[in-house]
Simulated scan of single mutants.
Amino acid sequence: MSNILPGGPAIAPEESPAPPSAETKASKPASLWSDAWYDLRRRPIFIISCIIIAVLVLMAIWPSLFSSVDPFNPRTCELSTARQLPSAGHPFGRDNLGCDMYARTIYGAANSLKIGISTSIFAALIGGLLGLVAGFFGGATDTVASRITEIFFAIPSILGALLIGSTFRGSGLGIWLVVISLTILGWPMTFRIMRAAVITAKSQDFVVAARALGAGPMRIMFRHLLPNALAPVIVVATINLGGFIAAEAALSYLGVGVQPPEISWGLMIADAQRRFLEAPLPLIFPAVFLSITVLAFIMLGDAVRDALDPKLR
C-alpha cells in the first residue's frame, strides 16, 4: 500500500531487490580450461580416444581381467604347439616358441604404457622447468639453456637412445634404462614450447601488475606464468606419449629396450619377424595393438590442442 504524505504526492514503498535466479548463480566467468572441457566433451575423436586409452590402462593395471592366469599364462610355452593358428582356447594362436599370443599381447601393454607415461612425465617436468626459468630470466640464462637444447636436438633420437641403451645395458635398471634414454632425448621439445609460452606471457599486464605489487620471481613464475603457459606443454606431452611408446617398441625391436623375460610389444614383433612368412599372425597382433595405442594418444593430443587453442575452434 502506497504512503501518502499530507499535501504531497504519493510515495511508493521501496522494492526489495529480486533474488538472483538460478541462471545468474550458475553463470561464472568463463576460463580457458572450462571452455576447453566443454568443447572436448562434444568431440567424438576425444571420446573415442579416451575409451581406447581407458581399456589399455585397464589392461596394464589388471591384465587378469582380460585373460585368466590359467590357461592364458604369458610365460607358459610349449614348443610342440609353436605357430598354432587361433583356436577357441587361444584366440590369437601361439608364437614361434609356443607361447599364447593373446596373453602376451595383453600383458605387453603394461611395460609399453609404463615407459610411455613415465617418459612423457619426466620430459615434461625437465623441459618445462628449464623452459620456465630460461624464458623468465632471459639473458645469459636463456642463451646457455638454448645452446644446450640445440646440442640435444642435433642428436638423432633413436641413434642416441641406442647408444645409451647399449652402453648401460648391464646396469640392472631394466625398463628404467629405456625411460632415462628417451627422457634425455625427449625434453628439448618441451623446453622450446614452454620457453616460447613464457616469453609471450611475461609481457602481459597481469605480470606487470604482479611485479608492481612486489611479487618475487618464484611467485611470478609458478603462480602467474606457469598456469598461463601450461596448455601447450600438456598438448605436446600428450602427443609425445604416443611417440615414446613407438620409440620403446623400436628400441626393444633392436635389442636395447625391454629385455626378456619382460614382455613388450616391441619384443614380440622382433621375435615374430624372423618367421613372418611362415606365421604372420604373431607379428600382426602386437603390431595392431601398438598402432592403435599410438594413434589413440595422438588423437587425444590433437583434440586437446584444438580445444585449448581458440583460433582452431
Rank of each mutant, 00 (worst) to 15 (best):
M1Y: 13
N3D: 13
I4A: 09
G8D: 10
S16V: 15
S21V: 02
T24V: 14
K25G: 10
K25Q: 15
P29S: 11
A30P: 06
W37A: 09
Y38I: 11
L40M: 00
R43I: 06
I45P: 10
V55D: 03
V57G: 07
M59K: 01
A60C: 05
W62A: 14
L65T: 01
P71T: 07
T76M: 03
E78A: 12
E78Y: 12
Q84K: 14
A88H: 00
G89R: 03
F92V: 13
R94I: 03
N96Q: 10
C99D: 03
T105W: 06
N111V: 10
I121Y: 11
A123M: 12
A124G: 07
A124K: 04
L125V: 13
G127P: 06
L129N: 06
G131Q: 03
L132I: 08
F136Y: 15
G138S: 04
A140V: 14
A140Y: 11
D142H: 05
D142V: 03
D142F: 05
V144H: 08
V144K: 12
A145C: 13
S146Q: 06
T149M: 14
P156K: 02
P156L: 04
I158G: 02
L159V: 15
L159Y: 11
G160C: 07
I164V: 15
T167S: 15
R169G: 05
G170T: 12
G172Q: 03
G174E: 07
G174R: 12
I175H: 02
I175Q: 04
W176H: 12
V179W: 05
T183A: 13
M189N: 12
M189K: 14
T190D: 13
F191V: 10
M194I: 07
R195G: 01
V198R: 03
I199V: 13
I199N: 00
Q204G: 04
V207G: 04
V208D: 06
V208S: 08
L213T: 05
M218D: 05
I220D: 08
R223S: 09
A229Y: 08
A231H: 07
V235A: 01
G242K: 02
F244D: 05
F244G: 03
I245Y: 02
Y253G: 07
G255A: 00
G255Q: 01
G257P: 02
V258A: 11
V258W: 10
Q259V: 12
G266C: 11
R275F: 15
R275K: 15
F276W: 11
F276A: 08
E278I: 14
L281D: 06
A287G: 12
L290Q: 05
L290E: 02
T293R: 04
A296F: 01
G301Q: 05
D302G: 09
A303P: 14
V304E: 00
D309M: 02
D309V: 00
L312M: 06
